[in-house]
């Protein structure tokens, strides 16, 4: 008797927990469907589109800002956005795209979580005559499967970080690099861009390179070890994203050094916390990787449906921020 009772409780708890776990995915689409279905806000001359967007997940502040920008822009223009969160899983993303095809949306946009494996599902979209737009991460599948790519130029970001260093840090410079997740496009491209600029300059050398996997905790652990090893006298830390740089700043402080002075720190992304650190002088430079892709994606969707020719790659203009202009820009930062 008691055992059955417990089983029932356990089952209820489990179900409850599963429901809790599911909420974010279920809620997101309903929330974004709402504005277009009944309320008429026809300020736009263009036809209202049904757009299916498959997002990677909500793994960082950057991603959340990216999602919000897309949702806000769709709402503003009165398009019906079917939003799906893949929670970092390619399988979910493929399922989402299939369901967009089944629903007969006008256009599909997605941020591919990995570079490969998209061929079959994109061929289905092509067969159904639905144009596909790729965002954020550069695709490696056949050119005829998507209309255009919209995102940031990661190579350029690495180059801009290196150019800032050449201009502001002089003399023989020893650089430690905190790389992103091995094999990911931003990590590969940012490393390549950075190296391309410094390779002809013998004063600058990368003496240490280790992955912090884009995470604050791992960035801190790597920097902590760096500061005790044979390369503890590095002058510059170049981190592939802000989170790792922020972790490194903590490690430098704990090692009794002054971040931003004893060791110059350069990073990429330009998230809110990085701006705070720059205005405090702890972070020297952050190259922006702008997540507010919403307007560009909506433009591309409208053009794709209207059949207007557009470039293969549409790149976001990114800017360099450092301690001189970060404090002024801080209040306007959206992410």
């Amino acid at each position: 008797m008691t055992r059955r009772c417990f089983a029932a409780i356990a089952a209820t708890l489990t179900t409850a927990l599963l429901f809790v776990g599911c909420t974010p995915t279920n809620e997101a689409p309903t929330a974004s469907l709402e504005p277009t279905s009944n309320t008429a806000t026809p300020a736009e001359p263009t036809k209202k589109l049904v757009i299916g967007f498959s997002q990677i997940g909500a793994e960082s502040g950057w991603r959340t800002a990216n999602t919000k920008s897309i949702q806000d822009e769709a709402k503003k223009r009165g398009h019906d956005l079917k939003f799906s969160d893949a929670q970092g899983d390619q399988e979910n993303q493929i399922k989402a795209i299939r369901s967009f095809i089944a629903q007969g949306v006008d256009v599909i946009a997605f941020a591919p979580v990995v570079e490969t494996g998209w061929g079959p599902v994109l061929k289905e979209a092509k067969a159904a005559g639905i144009p596909v737009i790729c965002s954020d991460r550069s695709p490696t599948f056949a050119d005829d499967l998507f209309v255009t790519f919209i995102g940031s130029d990661f190579v350029k970001e690495g180059e801009m970080a290196a150019e800032w260093m050449l201009k502001n840090v002089k003399g023989p410079v020893k650089i430690a690099e905190l790389t992103g997740t091995p094999g990911s496009a931003p990590a590969n491209d940012r490393a390549a861009g950075f190296r391309a600029i410094i390779k002809d300059n013998p004063d600058y050398s990368i003496v240490f390179s280790q992955t912090g996997e884009f995470e604050r905790a791992k960035g801190k652990a790597v920097a902590e070890a760096l500061l005790k090893g044979e390369f503890k006298d590095v002058n510059v830390i170049f981190a592939h994203n802000d989170d790792m740089a922020l972790g490194a700043i903590q490690a430098i402080e704990e090692a009794g050094k002054v971040p931003g002075k004893d060791i110059i720190i350069i990073s990429i992304d330009g998230v809110h916390d990085a701006f705070v650190a720059m205005s405090e002088g702890k972070l020297n430079c952050s190259v922006e990787c702008n997540p507010l892709l919403g307007p560009l994606i909506m433009d591309a969707c409208e053009k794709a449906v209207a059949g207007i020719e557009q470039p293969r790659r549409i790149l976001m203009e990114d800017q360099v921020y450092d301690t001189t202009n970060a404090a002024a820009a801080l209040p306007d930062r959206k992410y």
């Binding site: 790389t179 091995p182 240490f208 390179s209 280790q210 902590e224 760096l226 090893g229 390369f231």
Partner: peptide, 9 residues
Amino acid sequence: ILTRGVAPE
């Protein structure tokens, strides 16, 4: 591994 800077791979 971190202190010696072994390649991440």
